[in-house]
Design a protein around this nucleic acid. Structure first.
Lengths: 208, 208
DNA sequence: TGGCTAAACATAGCATCGCTATGTAATGTG
DNA sequence: CACATTACATAGCGATGCTATGTTTAGCCA
């Protein structure tokens, strides 16, 4: 055989793309490799072209999202945790809005589709836990509820980051999730308390 | 003065852009004017560049959406009508998914912002009507409920058209809207009936 | 250990992109 | 009817993503 690909360069290019994305600079083939010492061909040997680099960047976005969701401290109250997970979802998207946009760009394809499923599964297990504690109806479909929570989170983030809604509109998340959870059988008063406890809609300034 | 701009050419260019968008062809300056007899400069005299043409296309998207919402037949049941409006929103986005994507692209700016507000106002008036009939609580905020309905519709459409969710996931719209309306005070059984009556999630093959 | 092979990487150039500078034709007005 | 102003065509510029080609380096086996 011959030389082996340097994984450091691979992550360097993705990191640089994400960084330029956040800086609102145009992400072009030549601007990415400028200053790194590597040539434009690296993008092709590593990712097969710009499309591949966008795909890898999308994957990076899901990786960061998964890390952020995994960092949410879980409690004995799964409904509170669901709200906390939703808030973390919003927080992640607001910290890297451009990375989030790339994640859901046209031509949605990942090299590792399990990464996207993992984030949903994170919600599903928490919903399952809520069911076992009798917070939701026994016949509640965890995947359906997880999907509907996702729809709310994505709808909010998407409309806020692209402009039509003000940042303050994120506050709608709490009552919307509350309405959704109640429709799945949770007791209204307890649900409101739990969601209020878990809901922290505004992002930390930190950015992992 | 001198020659006056030909509005026919203006609409022709927008129409062509929307058509190429739907055909999944790359929308480039030269490909747009190819075959029309007009030169590339027309895009600059009419729209000031490609950005202006995208902005005009975005506006066209809102115009079509408004027409579709206005075409929804209203009934004596405003909650039914809300569901019908939501379904029409989904229908419009599914018929022209690429036009819909352009509408909410980064750099959200319209030459006529009232067009976007008009669609929301369409929901607000129906919600107001529901309040007057006692379907929602007297202290319900119509704009908040309209915004939250929008979030659900946009979240669904966005996740379905970009890939992560299957088309069948649109069925989540009805229970989500039901949960939302109930949280605003509607009587559960009546709400379910109304939403079911108004909900037609799948688009007509026609495309105005 | 050393030579062969294949993969990683650099360089140069191509087609095409959006855009602008410049020239021409057409139209409304005095 | 002549002029000035605007619409539109043509040509070309810098920059884009990508590819063809050459060079260098790393791994395998005799």
């Amino acid at each position: 055989m011959a030389r082996t690909k340097d994984p450091a360069i691979c992550t360097l290019l993705i990191e640089r793309a994400a960084q330029m994305l956040r800086a609102r600079e145009p992400v072009t083939l030549r601007s990415i490799v400028a200053g790194t010492g590597v040539s434009t061909m690296a993008v092709y040997t590593y990712f097969g072209g710009m499309d591949g680099l966008w795909r890898a960047t999308r994957q990076e976005g899901f990786t960061r999202l998964a890390a952020r969701l995994r960092a949410v401290p879980l409690s004995a109250d799964p409904v509170r945790d669901l709200a906390a997970l939703g808030a973390a979802y919003l927080s992640n998207a607001l910290v890297n809005p451009d990375l989030y946009r790339v994640m859901f760009d046209a031509g949605f394809e990942l090299e590792d589709p399990a990464a996207a499923d993992a984030t949903l599964h994170c919600l599903v297990t928490t919903i399952q836990r809520a069911k076992e504690l009798g917070r939701f109806r026994p016949d509640a479909d965890p995947l359906a509820l997880a999907t509907q929570s996702w729809v709310i989170g994505h709808g909010l983030v998407s409309l806020v980051t692209t402009g039509p809604l003000e940042r303050q509109a994120l506050d709608h998340g709490a009552p919307m999730l509350t309405a959704l959870f109640i429709s799945y059988g949770d007791e209204p008063d307890a649900c409101r308390r739990s969601v209020e406890l878990g809901w922290h809609p505004y992002p930390h300034p930190s950015d992992p």
